[in-house]
């Protein structure tokens, strides 16, 4: 039987609102993340330290428990800037390692298999595509950086009282701002590198390499040129400087906080530029 009038008809069903559209990508991208045992293991592992710290804080305020454990001191440790500095450095390092494993998986396969036209033939912009992929990284890294950081701060505040919390409100701001900067940087770097190398495994190794090599490069630059501005090329040192400022630590890194923020801005802008060059609905094959 001949089939007539089978011409194209546009989709007439309900549409997701424009503002929430990028979340569809996030939802699908997030599904595959925990398929990797390494990622799952690292994610779980990154909660051990906050948990240990919360238990430590509880013990810190319970003399009876300390004496029961035969610890002849009135505190296990001091809860000051150094405490939060170490805490956030450990969590940020965990976030970096986790990103190296799952970050490149989000975008590299789409580019390697020329799947971008399939995304962009739908009502989805390039910005929404990147936002959708980046939001998965941001969400996951938030869970292991500023969320436990603020939780630890909250636990200490509840044990020490409102006066302590008000006096040390800068710590909370540092946890939030430092973490947001770090995870935004990691998300953009992971996506940019994976978009350029298109091989998720290499992109992960490259992410590892970029962070270590820039640290070494910055230190070498400072030593040979007899300068301190080389440190502005070292993302890890910039983060330490920002945390140090908020946690009231005198680290003498030779990095100005505003300079560190500006440096992060430049690095993130460069990553965005790299992404804009590669995330396109078409590809020129030479």
């Amino acid at each position: 039987m001949a089939v007539y009038k089978r011409s194209y008809k546009g989709y007439e069903g309900p549409l997701t609102s424009r503002r929430k559209r990028f979340l569809i990508l996030s939802r699908y991208a997030a599904r595959g993340i925990f398929a990797s045992r390494i990622v799952t293991g690292l994610f779980i592992l990154s909660f051990f330290y906050p948990l240990a710290m919360i238990i430590g804080l509880y013990l810190n305020h319970n003399l009876s428990v300390l004496s029961f454990m035969k610890l002849h001191q009135d505190r296990l440790f001091d809860v000051n800037g150094a405490f939060f500095m170490v805490f956030m450095t450990v969590q940020s390092a965990g976030a970096f390692l986790l990103t190296a494993f799952f970050g490149p998986n989000l975008i590299a396969p789409d580019l390697a298999n020329n799947a971008l036209p399939l995304y962009f033939c739908r009502p989805l912009s390039r910005t929404e595509y990147v936002a959708g992929k980046a939001s998965v990284i941001l969400l996951l890294l938030s869970i292991i950086t500023w969320v436990p950081g603020l939780l630890v701060f909250g636990v200490e505040a509840s044990l020490s009282g409102g006066a302590w919390a008000w006096e040390h409100r800068g710590f909370a701001a540092g946890i939030l701002l430092g973490s947001l900067l770090w995870i935004s940087f990691l998300a953009l770097l992971a996506l940019a590198l994976s978009a350029w190398v298109r091989w998720k495994l290499v992109a992960g190794a490259l992410l590892l390499g970029v962070n270590f090599v820039t640290s070494g490069f910055a230190a070498a630059l400072n030593a040979t040129m007899d300068v301190t501005w080389g440190s502005y090329l070292d993302p890890a040192k910039l983060l330490t400087a920002i945390y140090g400022e908020f946690f009231g630590m005198d680290l003498s890194l030779g990095v100005n906080t505003w300079g560190a923020l500006a440096s992060y801005g430049v690095i993130c802008a460069f990553c965005t530029y790299l992404l804009s060059r590669k995330v396109r609905a078409f590809e020129v094959v030479r």
């Binding site: 390494i38 190296a100 494993f101 495994l201 992960g204 190794a205 590892l208 390499g209 270590f212």
Partner: peptide
């Protein structure tokens, strides 16, 4: 190994 990050991180 399939993933170079694991040996790279471990050796590093």
């Amino acid at each position: 190994m399939k993933n170079p990050i694991v040996p790279a991180a471990a050796v590093l």
